[in-house]
Design a binder for these strands. Sequence first.
DNA 1: GCGACAG
DNA 2: ATCTTGTCGC
Length: 268
Amino acid sequence: MEVVRPAYLPDPALDAAAMEAMQRDIAADATFADDHGLAPDAIRVDDRIEAGESVEPAQATLDGDGPVVAGVDQAFREDEAVSVAVALRGGRVIERAVGRAPLEIPYVPGLLAFREGSAIVDALESLSVGPDLLVLDGSGRIHYREAGIATHVGVLFDAPTVGVAKNLLCGTPVADVEGRYLDAGERVGIEANEEVETCPAGTTIGHFYQSRQYDHPERRHVNPLVVSPGHRVATGTATDLVAATCAGYKLPEPTRLADAAVGDVTGE
DNA sequence: GCGACAG
DNA sequence: ATCTTGTCGC
């Protein structure tokens, strides 16, 4: 893949005010409407995984039909960030790419892309396929300036992206989910509030999505995913697409596989 | 000043 | 995110 908006490369040397200013520009350039030619129905997961079988990584097959979805995830060592992108077609791995970058700034809520972004760019630049959709770890439009890491990366490459987070950064759920049991498949809208300074309060900027749930509400329950559009995807579609990439686990397959891959790149 | 806060 | 083993429950 190729960066098409180099002005938005996440330079960790910028001061916070400059980072925030860049995010406002990115949000203005982002498209929170469908512009991707992807149909959730066209996305397939590996049926062997859905059946609970263990699957060996498939050999690279760059040819074929059907949309390509890539998951991206990061892990950290001493003072470097490692990012891995895993591209899937029909639920099978067709390519993996690794990227690295020194860790130069601490984690600051709202400025995540400036800490991890360089490693992600490094990984995606070495990816030979241009995925029809990128699934990033973290928020997209659910962000103080509607420019979370999924939106930032999407605009950098002008690629359709969605963000999948495990926790809510900002915004207000339209229904109380606190300790409430959501059935698998349920979604609850997340609306912008005063924390989101770039759009009117009440705008739907994402969803809680219950990708997986236990059968008995009494004791244990799974926390829902936090899904939001990154770039070139509408809010409802973002959740539809993420739902289509899930295969019985809490995390979407692209994310799970990127997670595992970055794990053993970082590990042994 | 206090609270909230992706990874 | 990361430091880290076993363990309770379905």
